[in-house]
Design a protein around this nucleic acid. Sequence first.
DNA 1: TCTTATTATAGTCAACTTGACCATTAAGGG
DNA 2: CCCTTAATGGTCAAGTTGACTATAATAAGA
Lengths: 258, 258
Amino acid sequence: MTETPPARTADPAHSAPEGYDPGAFEPFAVTVDLAVFTVREARLHVLLVRRGEQPYRDRWALPGGFLHPRESAEAAARRELAEETGLAPEGPYAPLHLEQLRTYSDPDRDPRMRVVSVAYAALVPGPLPEPRGGGDAAHARWTALAEARGLAFDHDRILADAHDRVGAKLEYTGLATAFCPPEFTLGELQQVYETVWGVTLDRPNFRRKVLATPGLVTPAHDGTRRTGGRGKPAVLYRAGGAAVLHPPLLRPERRTTP
Amino acid sequence: MTETPPARTADPAHSAPEGYDPGAFEPFAVTVDLAVFTVREARLHVLLVRRGEQPYRDRWALPGGFLHPRESAEAAARRELAEETGLAPEGPYAPLHLEQLRTYSDPDRDPRMRVVSVAYAALVPGPLPEPRGGGDAAHARWTALAEARGLAFDHDRILADAHDRVGAKLEYTGLATAFCPPEFTLGELQQVYETVWGVTLDRPNFRRKVLATPGLVTPAHDGTRRTGGRGKPAVLYRAGGAAVLHPPLLRPERRTTP
DNA sequence: TCTTATTATAGTCAACTTGACCATTAAGGG
DNA sequence: CCCTTAATGGTCAAGTTGACTATAATAAGA
């Protein structure tokens, strides 16, 4: 962003010292790819679509698509999410969280042409609907993360990076509440942590820590849930709105003196 | 990444269902922008270049440039860093850390044309050389972060995002050592934390915490430094090589019960 | 209806960590 | 030689964590 763009190698005369010439630069295609996560039956699931075109025809891939001419990457991500999954941008099951992950730009990542892809991680709350594939992505499906292997392009890598990021952000942000419906119990919240991290947590200690962390959750009115539950009714909470947790809720991993 | 690219609006006939046609897609220019940080005289500095072309002529900007045809964003970032600052990719003052920050894709962020920029944060160790501007970036300069305002394009925003990211990563990674020379004292390391976070830390407590965090630092042989120092010689340490700290070194901010 | 399984919630306690200090050591500069 | 400066070594009370026990409230089943 600091110098005059280089002229296209095939035609140096197109160099534009003062004005600009859109045809004068190396053209790239820009796409977004989405790692959409949800928690289902105590397992982390990711939304995959089956490709109908070459390359990687009939292989599973992350949903995504090309940026429109005057569209930001984030707008494209929201649009693709709605188009390919039926998750309306502002509907009741709108993803509570959409976050840019990173950009993948290996020159050979797409065999057709030079494609730079901006990857996003999205989280949708737990009691999820099956995706109703609109448009050409009729083959959208929730897949358990463990079974999401052998994806098209470099999507295995993107998915792994997304999982890492989400797991890490559970520690020091209130992100876990994005996996929950508007009102949830502490048991459901704990389930999210256990599922994403792949660990089991001590129930009383988890509750003590969550309630001691300001801004993580706030009580919802006075309601207790009973319907369906097998044990004692649990108090309902809502997301506390805090972006960053102090102190963080650390994973139970290798600590100071293992 | 999941469907056939849309045809260029001006010429739908270019649509390529199976093969590909590089001219058939909306063309984007792709650049990298670099937020290169260092600690100098107890203040965080960032590397800026003065623009010699329109737009934003004579304004300060982050170093960066266009991707080459068969170059990844990271390779472009390393190349630009070397070209514009004289920091050799593998030399003694090579940045110890280069990390992708995020991608900026607002359609209007560059008035000339559609430019998507992948931003990187780079850290170079403390006893820094003045940048010797090679190429067209003869006007590269270290600038105290507080004075880096009114940059070209959306670089104010990128710089703020980069600072946030670096500050956050000091907490839970060993990133601070990237600001230090190969061998450093705990006082120098503390200086890094204090400078980036803008706080003062208790010396004995900082040392206790650092030494109790496995993988943050390891003693360098047996050497103590004396030359120049005014007080008792300090033991020298090296970076411990741990990517992520357990437990983290939290900033002294609002805690559980303020 | 009584019992049992299940889940939520309350509480205890020792080990560990943290923040605020004070003390000592080892230089360099008048 | 004394003073200043900086590194390092401790102490101590308060707070936090991990492991664990106990009690409460509900649904399902005998």
